[in-house]
């Protein structure tokens, strides 16, 4: 599975080297349509399980606890590696606050510094690729709820089917709500660190 996923990205990357530049803007629409279809299908998959509402009610504090843990953990990780690499605290915080949403975080950072913006973009692209590879492993060896953590803000869209496939319906629902909360936090946290 992981190999196929990486292969899809690599083939896409190679194809991207040869297609006309005008396709870049078009691909925005393809991504939106693809994500809409994907989320509709994920919704159907979740709704198939008639116990989903009971599962969600049972999750209780996890609804807030998981996104808080993901956001705090991302910031701690960014502060530590940022300090080791010599980045100022606020720049590390801005990169960590991207929470996997590479397009938005890099756009918010762009007026502040082009280099930091690219770093934020790449960090969050790497995070998404790592999430795709790590979710099945974390789900198997650490825990279902922890498997949401690598995904960050993408837990509600691109990595949701991977969480859904490797965990259970309750975790898939929590994954979406976690992604939703984290996506709301990105445009708040990133500018906060750059003030």
């Amino acid at each position: 599975m992981t190999f196929k996923i990486i292969l899809a990205v690599v083939i896409g990357g190679i194809v991207g080297l040869f297609v006309p530049d005008s396709w870049y803007a078009l691909s925005d629409n393809w991504l939106t349509v693809g994500l809409c279809l994907l989320l509709f299908f994920v919704g159907i998959d979740i709704g198939k399980n008639k116990n989903v509402l009971k599962d969600l009610k049972r999750s209780g504090a996890l609804f807030f606890l998981i996104p808080i843990g993901v956001a705090v953990g991302s910031l701690i990780g960014a502060f530590i590696i940022g300090a080791l690499l010599g980045y100022p605290l606020h720049e590390s915080g801005a990169i960590g606050s991207g929470l996997g949403w590479y397009t938005l975080s890099s756009i918010i950072i762009a007026p502040y510094s082009a280099e930091l913006s690219v770093l934020a973009f790449l960090t969050n692209v790497v995070r998404e690729i790592l999430a795709i590879m790590m979710i099945p492993l974390v789900a198997k060896y650490v825990g279902f709820y922890e498997a949401i953590a690598p995904a960050g803000a993408t837990a509600m869209d691109t990595t949701l089917p991977i969480v859904s496939r490797n965990t259970n319906s309750e975790t898939a629902v929590l994954s979406f709500s976690t992604g939703l909360i984290l996506s709301t936090l990105v445009p708040i946290l990133v500018p906060l660190f750059l003030r």
């Binding site: 196929k4 996923i5 899809a8 990205v9 690599v10 083939i11 896409g12 990357g13 190679i14 194809v15 991207g16 080297l17 297609v19 530049d21 396709w23 870049y24 691909s27 393809w30 991504l31 693809g34 994500l35 279809l37 994907l38 299908f41 994920v42 159907i44 998959d45 198939k48 280099e115 690219v118 770093l119 973009f121 790449l122 692209v125 998404e128 795709i132 691109t158 089917p161 991977i162 859904s164 496939r165």
Partner: peptide, 30 residues
């Protein structure tokens, strides 16, 4: 539904990869 989800996912991953391959800023910065 599983197959449909996977088809969408792989399509999205392909497009994501394609965008990375097309973006000179990303290639140079990498």
């Amino acid at each position: 539904i599983d197959r449909l989800q996977m088809a969408c996912l792989f399509g999205l991953l392909f497009i994501m990869g394609m965008r990375i391959g097309m973006d000179d800023r990303v290639k140079e910065a990498f």
